[in-house]
Computed example of a mutant assay.
Amino acid sequence: MKLVYVFDAYCGWSYGFAPTLAEVTRRHPGLPVEVVSGGLFTGARRVPIRQFGYVRGANAKISELTGVPFGKGYESLIADGSFVMDSEAAARGVAALRQLAPDRGVELTEALQVAFYVDGRSMSDPDTYRRLAAEHGLDGDALVAAFEGPAARTAAATDFRRSRELGVEGFPTLLAVDGDRATVLAVGHADAEAIDRRLR
């Protein structure tokens, strides 16, 4: 059995779920976790953040329920309103991190979300990955090359397809997958205790 975590790096609820997922992986160190990008802001949804009027209210709710902070850098992006969340670029970043550090998916995707939701760094900017590499002991040039390379683009498309094939309709979704059988453990919000109960 393994866990499959379908999320979007630009999804606030996924950011709020990151500490729960980290706790679940601490409790079950032998349980592999596959991290899959879902593709929330692609196509017609790739628009300036000001067009999503619910963001501030949603963030307040996320912070209240999960305790995650939203930093000044991120708040500046929201206030300006022109920033465009591009989930395809974020998925390429996640794929690049998986390529360089396949066993650190949970940790590094959380770090990528912190870079956005706390520091306001774009997941489309190679410099974001260079900084992330420096902070987490990775080769910055290799990470940027992976982010910009064709393999990451292919991996992003594969992730979006896998999300659809798994029937995921909301982010984040945590699944327990055993062979051909997938069991939903959480959608949106849950604590580690609830997930443990469902795992048992």
Score class of each variant (00 low, 15 high):
Met1Ile: 03
Met1Gln: 12
Met1His: 12
Tyr5Gly: 00
Tyr5Phe: 09
Phe7Met: 11
Phe7Val: 04
Asp8Pro: 06
Ala9Tyr: 08
Tyr10Phe: 14
Cys11Gly: 10
Gly12Met: 03
Phe17Asp: 09
Ala18Tyr: 15
Ala18Glu: 15
Thr20Cys: 10
Thr20Ser: 10
Leu21Arg: 12
Glu23Met: 06
Glu23Arg: 15
Thr25Pro: 07
Arg26Tyr: 12
Arg27Trp: 12
His28Ile: 01
Gly30Asn: 06
Gly30Asp: 13
Gly30Ser: 14
Leu31Glu: 14
Pro32Gly: 06
Glu34Ile: 03
Glu34Gly: 06
Val36Thr: 01
Val36Leu: 00
Ser37Phe: 07
Leu40Trp: 03
Phe41Ile: 02
Gly43Val: 01
Val47Gly: 05
Pro48Cys: 04
Ile49His: 07
Ile49Lys: 06
Gly53Thr: 15
Val55His: 02
Val55Ser: 07
Ala58Pro: 00
Asn59His: 11
Asn59Pro: 03
Lys61Pro: 02
Lys61Gln: 15
Ile62Arg: 05
Ser63Phe: 02
Gly67Gln: 07
Val68Ala: 14
Val68Asp: 13
Phe70Gln: 03
Lys72Ala: 13
Lys72Ile: 00
Gly73Ala: 08
Gly73Glu: 12
Gly73Lys: 05
Gly73Met: 06
Ser76Val: 04
Ala79Arg: 15
Ser82Val: 00
Phe83Tyr: 12
Phe83Thr: 04
Val84Arg: 13
Val84Thr: 10
Met85Thr: 09
Asp86Trp: 06
Ser87Lys: 04
Ala89Leu: 05
Arg92Thr: 09
Val94Gln: 15
Ala96Arg: 03
Ala96Met: 05
Arg98Lys: 14
Leu100Ala: 05
Val106Pro: 15
Val106Met: 11
Thr109Met: 08
Ala111Arg: 08
Ala111Glu: 09
Leu112Tyr: 08
Val114Gln: 11
Tyr117Ala: 00
Ser122Lys: 07
Ser122His: 13
Met123Ile: 00
Met123Gln: 14
Asp125Tyr: 05
Asp127Glu: 15
Asp127Tyr: 01
Tyr129Asn: 01
Arg130Gly: 14
Arg131Val: 08
Arg131Asn: 07
Leu132Gly: 04
Glu135Tyr: 03
Gly137Glu: 07
Asp139Phe: 02
Asp139Leu: 00
Val144Gly: 07
Ala145Pro: 12
Gly149Pro: 09
Ala152Ile: 00
Ala152Gly: 01
Arg153Ile: 00
Thr154Asn: 00
Ala157Asn: 02
Phe160Glu: 07
Phe160Lys: 08
Arg161Phe: 06
Arg162Phe: 09
Ser163Gly: 11
Ser163Pro: 02
Leu166Asp: 13
Glu169Leu: 08
Gly170His: 09
Gly170Gln: 11
Phe171Asp: 06
Thr173Val: 03
Leu174Arg: 05
Leu174Gly: 06
Ala176Lys: 09
Ala176Gln: 11
Asp178Glu: 15
Asp178Phe: 01
Gly179Trp: 10
Asp180Val: 06
Asp180Phe: 05
Asp180Leu: 02
Arg181Gln: 14
Arg181Trp: 05
Arg181Asp: 14
Arg181Asn: 07
Ala182Pro: 12
Thr183Lys: 11
Val184Asp: 11
Val184Ile: 10
Ala186Pro: 12
Gly188Leu: 01
Ala190His: 11
Ala190Thr: 09
Ala192Phe: 09
Ala194Thr: 14
Ile195Val: 15
Arg197Asp: 14
Arg198Ala: 15
Arg198Glu: 14
Leu199Phe: 10
Leu199Arg: 04
